[in-house]
Design a protein around this nucleic acid. Sequence first.
DNA 1: GGAGTTTACGAATGTCGTAACTATC
DNA 2: GATAGTTACGACATTCGTAAACTCC
Lengths: 85, 85
Amino acid sequence: MSLQQIRYFVAVAEEENVGRAAERLRIAQPALSRQIRNLEAEFGTELFERTSRGMRLSSSGAVFLPHARAILSSVESATAALYKR
Amino acid sequence: MSLQQIRYFVAVAEEENVGRAAERLRIAQPALSRQIRNLEAEFGTELFERTSRGMRLSSSGAVFLPHARAILSSVESATAALYKR
DNA sequence: GGAGTTTACGAATGTCGTAACTATC
DNA sequence: GATAGTTACGACATTCGTAAACTCC
């Protein structure tokens, strides 16, 4: 699990679509798809349900999302504390 | 900034010595030294004062340490939440 | 057949360990 | 000269983008 993967996960969870999320993150679609797959493989559970329309959070994904946001938030407050000097 | 770098930073802050921290992390000394340097370069500030005995937190490092621990703690609670299902 | 996701593959980037260097006591 | 940190360099692993393939309407 890397911070980048967490950011990727949140973007996909919000867009419910890998293509749009990739555009927002300014990376290519396959790179994003792979990182999500890698994250799921590491956790041993699928974070999304793949539908014909895109991706929707699975129950595991729904559990993880608030934690993911908390991690990113603590990272932001860490950098803010450092740059505020 | 990566989670690994944050773990490395905390280890060095606790050991006040790159060699011991590297041993604890089971990586080689230079790898650890470089990652700390990379982190400092990214932040644009030194996190440690280098003494003849080892490393001591700088004022920036002292600011960052509790944030670093908070990040790692939120990561742990995220993984715990996922594995508890 | 179109929208969306994934796999294949080569290129670029990052991280590591060993060995050599620097500095301080 | 011993202890501690850093730099150099080549090897290994990860991540990326382009192109092609798969899948479900």
